[in-house]
Design a protein around this nucleic acid. Structure first.
Lengths: 206, 206, 206, 206
DNA sequence: TATGAATGAGAATTCATTCAT
DNA sequence: GATGAATGAATTCTCATTCAT
């Protein structure tokens, strides 16, 4: 008796494979996850995999493209928020962060991409670098504008400051997504905003 | 005529292999660098490699151990500096950073370790995590103490702030070591210190 | 023009590889037979081999499992025969021995396992030891029972006698399977049975 | 400071290496023991090893030659004993067996040679086969002579009977040397002699 | 769409042996 | 006699990809 062929809609199967691969890449890393791992989890065979994806690399690319889109949507919100007063901004960040972090797939994706991104080829590295660069530009522009408006001190370099902010966020995400530590979102965002906006030093008595 | 055997002192050869591997790992990543790549660069054969290192992984470990030692020395200086006034600290950081960054091997090592570290096994990941954790603890303790002394505002969380600082530094290093961007050390350090100590916001007129 | 892919049913190929390996292991020993030897004989490439067997060791295990099963079937017959009168037993042994010995694969298998068995790992050694132990137990029980019935002299140790019998059989098999000497089955079995049952000594005149 | 060279008399060193190799071969098998294992145990380096033995194989050969000589001496005693009455023979066997078995090196050698002998090359296999063949011939001749004298029944085949005896002895030795089981020498020899001489069957009442 | 046997180019590792010092 | 760095062929195993059915 031949094994039954489980026919599925192409898109459905593709989504299924991507979801499984996302989990496996996050758990073991891209290099340590083999096609065999993926197909055996998916209950399909080699041939079927290559029916849907041209290569393992192409699968990763698809995953990155898909989830990067979600994140890029979030950045747009970020951009809009920049005009608002600080107290509102804080609340706003907490809301969207909470939204993203409830999404398990996002966590897995962040994990892959903080973990494996840089062992990968130039093309993918560029996609990710570009994504972060967009954020850096948004932040940097905001800082420059705020400097012009006199709301932000003029002697700090907007670009370096932006990198610094991105780095801080990545690090906190890293502890959450990769090292699986608990993350107190409210406290984390509050602390980062407080430090960046007001600094650590006690104001001297006037 | 066969090429002669090039005899060397064992330690010398070991150092040579490590140096070549450091360069290759930094350039192509650990996984994408084969033993063949290393030995052909070193002008030796497989057997010679395994005479000096038990495995590819052991080679990486040796590299990490060696360079981590240098970095750990730098942390100790960091710890000492914590007691000094800010203006001196700034100058001090600029000095040791400049020292480290003139060392090409350090740059390559930082590259490997910001790039590949997390695709690696538990043992190595732990070594690196431990290293960063030491720094986090130093900074965190410093912040706590400064809060007790009334020099630093009490409402920020020392640990999250420390992660933030580490993240900022990593990110700047990442642009320097991995993305090969130029790094203006003075400006970078000054900016980071200014932002962290005084914040971005313009003090309202008193 | 590349040679075509010779597609086969998985089970067929597996059987083919096992049969070739059996021959090669018997001829050169397990350690001296390389995967390359096997695949070049089979007309396949490395990958194909590992498609069917997880490792060289796993291949050996499969071979041992398969043939041990045949031998274990024979033991069961042995057990049944124990109740019969000696003259019938003799005829019976000759029949099943003749059956086994006409099977070339059995000869090769016996060769491997008298030759290589003890250079192997614990797991396999145990399988084989267990097999022989089963026989020893059957024989030993038989002797004990016969002693109780007064058919066998009481002063001989059943276990040592069983080992002795097994050893005799192994030695004869060794000359047949490993040293490729001709074996006169009738004469061998008759001699062994006569010696063990009646001993070598001439009965003194009564 | 150079490591000191431990000079030794050539013969002494050779004996030391052989003794260590004997132990290692017995413990792990010939194939699984590397030159490195041997030299690190002996506290010498590669070059020194090859100063004393032309190859790993040659080392094994030397070991076999040396110990086979001891065993061959024992066979000669065996030959002489054949003329004596059975009761004396039994005592005699027990004495020489006890002597051999108190010698740890003999046990290790027996282990190697029951375990590895047949995975080896033709030349060594032949040496060992020849050794056993000598014993077989001695026994076989003795049986023939005893048959002519009317002391042994005429219908058993002397050669097959000799193989049977050798096999029994090997098997008992195997349990002692390879499987490390305790061996009750008196009981073993007594049982074997009783079985072979008088058989297992109870004499029917006359 | 689906199957799964077959491919083949590596990859890491082992180890007996050689030889310059 | 002694050292130990160097050799290099051999060996096992991996895995992304292809293709006949």
């Amino acid at each position: 008796m031949k094994p039954k062929r489980k026919r599925r809609d192409g898109i459905q199967r593709q989504a299924q494979i991507m979801e499984i691969a996302l989990r496996l890449f996050a758990a073991k890393g891209y290099h340590s996850t083999s096609i065999d791992d993926i197909i055996s989890e998916a209950g399909i065979v080699k041939g079927t995999f290559y029916l849907h994806f041209a290569s393992k690399h192409n699968l990763l690319e698809s995953i990155i493209d898909t989830h990067l889109k979600t994140l890029i949507e979030s950045i747009k919100l970020l951009d809009i928020s920049m005009a608002k007063p600080i107290s509102e901004v804080k609340e706003f960040y907490i809301q969207i962060t909470r939204g993203l972090m409830q999404n398990e797939e996002i966590r897995l994706f962040v994990k892959i991409f903080l973990r494996d991104a840089f062992g990968l080829d130039h093309k993918l590295l560029e996609k990710i670098t570009t994504f972060f660069h967009q954020i850096v530009i948004i932040i940097s522009n905001y800082i420059s504008k705020a400097q012009a408006d006199g709301r932000v001190v003029k002697h700090i370099d907007p670009l370096i400051t932006s990198y610094s902010i991105i780095g801080s966020v990545k690090e906190v995400l890293f502890h959450w997504a990769v090292l699986d530590e608990k993350l107190d979102i409210d406290k984390s965002i509050t602390t980062l905003l407080d430090v960046y906006f007001a600094g650590m030093l006690e104001r001297e008595a006037e």
